[in-house]
Design a protein around this nucleic acid. Structure first.
Length: 467
RNA sequence: GGACAGGUGGCCGAGUGGCCGAAGGCGCUGGUUUGCUAAACCGGUAUACGCGCAAAACGCGUAUCGCGGGUUCGAAUCCCGCCCUGUCCUCCA
């Protein structure tokens, strides 16, 4: 959520930001609603003040009169009744006015709020303008020794690479048929060493963040209330991407939702809290199962482990003070963590600065990290894929947009409360990251060499071999 | 899933129609004093929104006693609905 005061003071900034993101918002209506809302509030409040004053002045007297009225008779009673009616006239008319204003506010306020929630966070000034992924700018890339992602796999390694689908089949690492049998399309079963490799990479990543980067590991709910999804900014727009658990039909008041990322649980932790400045930054990581409906992705990446409904992810978030410099420092730190991990796994990768059109609602800045996947991409002359980049990570700076929605604040040095800044980034998402691991480390004999850091979690094995 | 009890400020806790944004205590904090530790005394100590101000400070106002609605000139207090928490029973990795 954006700051409504900031919108009032500088509407152009938000109009431009929405335009840069390719989002259409009826700002005129929003501004009109805001003005009406404030006018009604001012009026309402002054009448309530008047009501309170009157109540204090004449209220006790009315109480007394009512007491007397019970005991009085005849002409005396009539006189008291008349006096009472006179006393009640003004507060009663005030009451009617207040009720009318309240009614209006009850329609204006929610409409205003709903529209306000849809205003996207304006991109940071240095984010390149663009309309979609094709306008993203590569920041840098890295290659392991002896491999260059601009040259063909075969030329460098001396054999044609298998795709991860073929490797998974030949090495018996996953069973798609039975996954689909149980749960439908885009489901899978990890089998044997496939499951071990999956767990190994997750465990390695979580340990890395805790041991080498000082992040606090957390186990958080993956079943959350709607407020959590709203607060973290995944709703209302991402609603059709989330699995919905209907509980209200069973008598409970709240439906629940499965989270698509550990970010929801980590950021929801401190919702509605006021932290002290010394509590910041909070640096958390979690390992959680992620659920995504992938609505609208029909036909894309339908085969294999790339686009699936359920996966596991180690996620990192930072909640820091509301300073641009601090946000940027942590952003770099989070990306550095990922680069360290990818380098240790020997995976070529590149960093892409996302353009304004590719940021999404809540981000002011985002860098995607893509790994080189030899089994992806267009087919070459031999009918085999020529390799392509595939997104494995996404590092976002959210400014105060998310914490404002979550009502997550801290008390700064001067004792003022402020909305904190938030950031998040993938640490590792598996099984997707198994794709580059398998494809990059495959050997001519059909085996796959397990990257050194993962072996300890694979029972000491150095290779995956066909049975 | 069943039964009962209960939700008041950072915490504890008083408060059954106007004098209550709310006693008292604890905590925190500023000060005074006692040559240390500690104590005593005095003061301060919620959040949001609106208006004023160029803005901060500040001033004024409104709302908030779990949430929503109702009764009333007036609700922490009365009525209705809901949510949540605790305890016991049941079930369970």
């Amino acid at each position: 959520m954006i700051d409504p005061k900031a919108l009032r003071e500088n509407p152009t900034k938000f109009r431009q930001g929405a335009a840069d993101k390719g989002v259409v918002i009826d700002f005129d209506r929003l501004i009109a609603l805001d003005e009406r809302r404030r006018a009604v509030m001012t009026d309402l409040e002054s009448r309530r003040a008047e009501q309170g004053r009157l109540g204090k002045e004449t209220g006790p007297k009315m109480g007394q009169l009512k007491g007397k009225l019970k005991a009085a008779m005849g002409a005396e009673a009539a006189a008291i009744s008349a006096e009472l009616a006179e006393l009640e006239r003004k507060p009663q008319s005030l009451k009617a006015q207040i009720a009318a204003l309240e009614l209006e506010l009850a329609s204006v306020e929610p409409a205003w709020r709903e529209l306000l929630m849809t205003v996207p966070q304006p991109p940071a000034a240095d984010v390149p303008k663009g309309t979609g992924a094709q306008d993203n700018k590569e920041l840098r890339r890295w290659n392991p020794k002896g491999f260059d992602s601009t040259k063909s796999f075969e030329a460098q390694r001396g054999f044609k690479p298998k795709t991860h689908l073929e490797l998974v089949r030949d090495l018996k690492l996953a069973d798609f048929e039975r996954g689909v049998k149980m749960s439908g399309t885009r489901h899978y079963v990890l089998t044997g060493m496939g499951m071990r490799l999956h767990q190994a990479v997750l465990r390695y990543a979580l340990d890395f963040m805790a041991d080498k980067r000082g992040f606090t590991p957390m186990g958080v709910p993956v079943i959350v209330r709607e407020e959590c999804m709203m607060g973290t900014g995944f709703f209302p727009f991402g609603r059709e991407q989330a699995y919905h658990i209907e509980e209200s039909k069973r008598g409970n008041a709240h439906d629940l939702f499965l989270t698509g990322t550990g970010e929801v649980g980590l950021m929801g932790l401190h919702a509605d809290e006021i932290l002290s400045a010394s509590d910041l930054p909070r640096t958390y990581c979690t390992l959680s199962t992620c659920f995504r409906r992938e609505a609208g992705a029909s036909g894309k990446d339908t085969a294999g482990l790339y686009r699936i409904h359920q996966f596991d992810k180690v996620e990192q978030v930072v909640v820091c003070q509301a300073l641009e410099s601090e946000s940027r420092t942590w952003h770099a730190h989070m990306m550095e963590s990922v680069e360290m991990i990818l380098q240790s796994l020997g995976l070529p990768y590149r960093l892409l600065q996302c353009c304004t059109g590719d940021l999404g609602m809540k981000n002011e800045d985002m860098v995607d990290i893509e790994c080189w996947m030899p089994g992806r991409g267009d087919d070459g002359a031999d009918g085999r894929p020529t390799g392509d980049w595939g997104e494995t990570h996404s590092a976002s700076r959210l400014g105060d947009y998310q914490c404002r929605r979550l009502n997550l604040r801290y008390r700064d040095g001067e004792g003022r409360t402020q909305f904190a800044y938030a950031l998040n980034n993938t640490v590792i998402a598996s099984p997707r990251v198994l794709i580059p691991i398998l494809e990059m480390h495959q050997q001519k004999d059909g085996s796959v060499e397990i990257p050194a850091p993962l072996r300890v979690h694979c029972g000491g094995a150095t290779h995956l071999r066909p049975a």
